[in-house]
């Protein structure tokens, strides 16, 4: 009489243990999977930036050529007449940054285009060339720098020694 009772008891104990072990595994597995998807645990650290990120990426998808504060966001080019011709012809080989960090006259921009056509496999720009040149010469024209400029963009800080 005693032994079937004992068996049932120990069997239910075993089942309980099995459930506990299985549950613990499920929790661990869930945590591990989460860690792989988000190894830096960023979702817990800063929900706001996470949300911002999502909203920006969604916006970018829907607005590939978005302009913000007069700047073409994707490339950093100034918004002006000829912008898209420049984006389409001048950023497939090199970064837009190579253009935007430079300042040249129309003649020099033109010489640069010729140099790229002669040595860098740039195609014939056809009717777009005039628009591109006038965009570059207008928006990225040389500024006078003189023989030495003032130190600029100085960020002041207290020096502790």
């Amino acid at each position: 009489m005693e032994s079937p009772e004992k068996f049932r008891k120990s069997a239910s104990e075993v089942f309980k243990l099995m459930y506990v072990v299985f549950f613990v595994f499920l929790v661990i597995a869930g945590l591990l999977v989460y860690l792989m998807v988000d190894p830096s645990l960023s979702a817990f650290k800063n929900n706001n930036s996470d949300n911002t990120y999502i909203s920006i990426s969604k916006q970018e998808e829907s607005d590939f050529d978005k302009i913000e504060n007069g700047i073409h966001v994707r490339t950093g080019f100034i918004e002006a007449e000829g912008l898209m011709q420049v984006v389409n012809n001048c950023t497939s080989c090199h970064s837009a940054k190579l253009v935007t960090q430079n300042r040249m006259s129309k003649e020099q921009w033109s010489a640069t285009i010729r140099w790229m056509q002669e040595t860098q496999n740039l195609w014939d720009l056809g009717q777009n060339e005039e628009a591109i040149l006038s965009y570059l010469a207008t928006n990225y024209a040389p500024k006078k720098g003189g023989r030495r400029q003032n130190l600029s963009d100085v960020e002041w800080y207290d020096l502790e020694e």
Partner: peptide, 10 residues
């Protein structure tokens, strides 16, 4: 720093 500016990475 050059003036007139020179072409290339600044």
């Amino acid at each position: 720093e050059f003036d007139p500016p020179a072409k290339g990475n600044q």
